[in-house]
Simulated assay, not measured.
Amino acid sequence: MKNSRIANLQVLSAIAGCTLAGLIVSFASAATAQLVLQEGDSGTAVSTLQDRLRTLGCYDGETTGFFGSQTRDAVIRCQEQRNITPDGIVGAETYRALELGNPEPGTGSSQYGNRLQVGDRGAGVEELQRRLQTRGYYYGEIDGVFGQETQSAVIQLQRDSGLSQTGEVDAQVYAVLDGSTPPAPTPDVGNGLQLGDQNSRVADLQQQLNRIGYSLPVTGYFGTQTQQAVLSFQQSRSLPPTGNADPETLRAIQQAAGGSSTPSNSRRYSVVIPFTDSASFNRIQAVIPDAVPRQNRLGNFVRAGSFTTPEEAERQVNILRSRGLTDARVVFE
């Protein structure tokens, strides 16, 4: 009987040990998952990665925010240069080698009130998540990790508050979270903007164009979609139709955006192109180089314009289909 009890205790101890080990592995895996970027991912973290790869001479593509085959090959190139296993996946070792920040959890270095973005960790991110949760924007775990779920919550807050949808937490986002009025951005006409520019002024321009009826992803990159929107605006205002946002065009857009009476919830005819994998997204990018991947309950898609009449939307669909994007279609939003 005594030997039987001892045997049972040994079995229970072994089971408990396995369970504990499993939990440790599970927690470790969850933490590691927050560090990994790989093919098929999208968001600000991927944009940051692409910018860094370009600086290091491993990437010569555009900053799209989508981790496709071109980004994977660039990661492999940088990994080979640094004697890292060339798997095309940005794990903790590659993250550090590319100097993208400190990927380790629990550093506590990101304080609430400082600028926060994807990849940041610590008490400041925990406080951010709590405040976003209180306002109904965040439903995930309060883990102090600024990942895709936290970024999506910040973008939704920015969208609802009329701010540039950067996914980063700046003074304007803090002002909204603290219940005060966000400081208005200083208008900056400068020397104009053109194809290939990438900065916060481009994001402001895209936001202004959206307020007067266009439908652009707010990426901060002046690509072909932004160029076409600027060209359309210039033609509607009898301005020189260059597609470049020169100072005169920027002033006209700012004036139109400030006085636009178009309600923010007005419904429009949008052209969308569904896709299922990175290969199909790459085919879309071949036609629309600055395409931005989006996702809703129905799946992945790219938005290719928004129009006030179905006739205009159908014309855009026909153009896209003639260029090989046969899945292009019109949705009423």
Score class of each variant (00 low, 15 high):
residue 277 D to G: 04
residue 24 I to L: 14
residue 157 L to H: 05
residue 85 T to H: 13
residue 243 G to C: 09
residue 247 P to Y: 01
residue 236 S to D: 14
residue 295 Q to F: 03
residue 122 G to Q: 09
residue 169 V to K: 00
residue 146 F to M: 09
residue 171 A to R: 15
residue 190 G to N: 04
residue 78 C to Q: 12
residue 89 I to W: 08
residue 137 Y to N: 02
residue 7 A to F: 13
residue 186 T to R: 14
residue 54 R to M: 14
residue 37 L to P: 09
residue 39 E to I: 13
residue 245 A to L: 04
residue 136 G to S: 04
residue 162 G to H: 01
residue 138 Y to V: 01
residue 97 A to E: 12
residue 196 G to V: 05
residue 204 D to E: 14
residue 159 R to V: 09
residue 12 L to I: 09
residue 133 Q to E: 09
residue 162 G to C: 02
residue 84 I to D: 02
residue 129 Q to R: 01
residue 207 Q to T: 10
residue 145 V to N: 15
residue 26 S to Y: 11
residue 161 S to T: 05
residue 196 G to S: 01
residue 318 N to R: 11
residue 100 L to F: 05
residue 129 Q to P: 01
residue 295 Q to H: 08
residue 210 N to T: 07
residue 2 K to P: 00
residue 137 Y to E: 02
residue 149 E to L: 12
residue 229 A to V: 10
residue 22 G to H: 00
residue 68 G to A: 04
residue 300 N to K: 11
residue 143 D to R: 08
residue 47 S to G: 14
residue 313 A to L: 11
residue 98 L to Y: 06
residue 152 S to D: 15
residue 129 Q to A: 00
residue 245 A to G: 07
residue 163 L to A: 04
residue 120 D to I: 05
residue 327 D to Q: 15
residue 229 A to L: 12
residue 198 Q to L: 10
residue 271 V to H: 05
residue 115 R to H: 11
residue 9 L to K: 11
residue 238 S to F: 13
residue 310 P to A: 13
residue 148 Q to M: 09
residue 105 P to H: 12
residue 152 S to Q: 14
residue 120 D to P: 01
residue 222 F to R: 02
residue 282 N to E: 15
residue 110 S to W: 01
residue 231 L to D: 03
residue 274 P to L: 02
residue 289 P to L: 15
residue 80 E to I: 06
residue 154 V to Y: 03
residue 156 Q to Y: 00
residue 219 T to V: 04
residue 13 S to D: 09
residue 67 F to S: 06
residue 321 R to A: 13
residue 100 L to G: 14
residue 12 L to C: 09
residue 29 S to E: 06
residue 246 D to A: 03
residue 325 L to F: 07
residue 301 F to R: 02
residue 249 T to R: 01
residue 100 L to R: 04
residue 30 A to C: 05
residue 326 T to Y: 10
residue 302 V to L: 06
residue 143 D to Q: 07
residue 72 R to C: 09
residue 269 Y to V: 13
residue 196 G to Q: 03
residue 159 R to M: 10
residue 182 P to R: 02
residue 180 S to M: 12
residue 156 Q to F: 00
